[in-house]
Amino acid sequence: MNYNWNWGIFFEQSPEGTGSYADMLLSGLVWTIVTALCAWVIAFAVGSVIGVLRTLPSRAAQAIGNAYVELFRNIPLLVQMFLWYFVLPEMLPESWGTWLKQLPNAPFYTAVVCLGFFTASRVAEQVRAGIQALPRGQRMAGTALGLTTAQTYRYVLLPNAYRIILPPLTSEFLNNLKNTSVALTIGLLELTARARAMQEFSFQVFEAFTAATIIYIVINLLVVAVAGLIERRVAVPGR
């Protein structure tokens, strides 16, 4: 292979003048993590609500929950990104649209909202599956004790369901983290975008992508380790 390797490239100044190429990748990593965490907050909250809706006896609630999941699962994430970024501001009253377009860090906010609602549909699937995996008697026992539906969910069903779905939720979190890279298309300067920029500036393709690859793998391992800790922490004794 006649490729000129140069592993020292990371310590050379990037043409952006804000530090070395290594700094550039690290700032990308920070954006990746911050975007993923913010999106996860939305995804977890919205996903839990939608997941619960789908397990309620009310037909209307189920229909709303199902419609949400179908809508967000059947459109590619990239297209959703474009809808939030290019289309939404045009659909709003003009003054709002202008405000949106002029927001500093617009790609970041857009990515957070888009990923949050997208991932929520997947979290909702898990929450629904978790609740439905519980013995039917649990809901009846809650009701029989005089708990309201909301209380039954809050104190009986959800605490158990979350424990069951911790492993699939971990993998949804990791998907969410990897999906932040799609936001490079709307200009978010996350890790993959920075690796790509480094490649364009320096022509050291493989060093740039190798570094990004290693960073992604390390984050994956860390998240899996932390999830394992949480799992042990919240485990119910005797199960």
């Binding site: 990791l174 690796a195 690859t213 992604y216």
Partner: peptide, 11 residues
């Protein structure tokens, strides 16, 4: 499975 598809496409 650890890598974002976008990165793999570039790779």
């Amino acid at each position: 499975r650890s890598l974002p598809l976008v990165l793999v496409i570039f790779w």
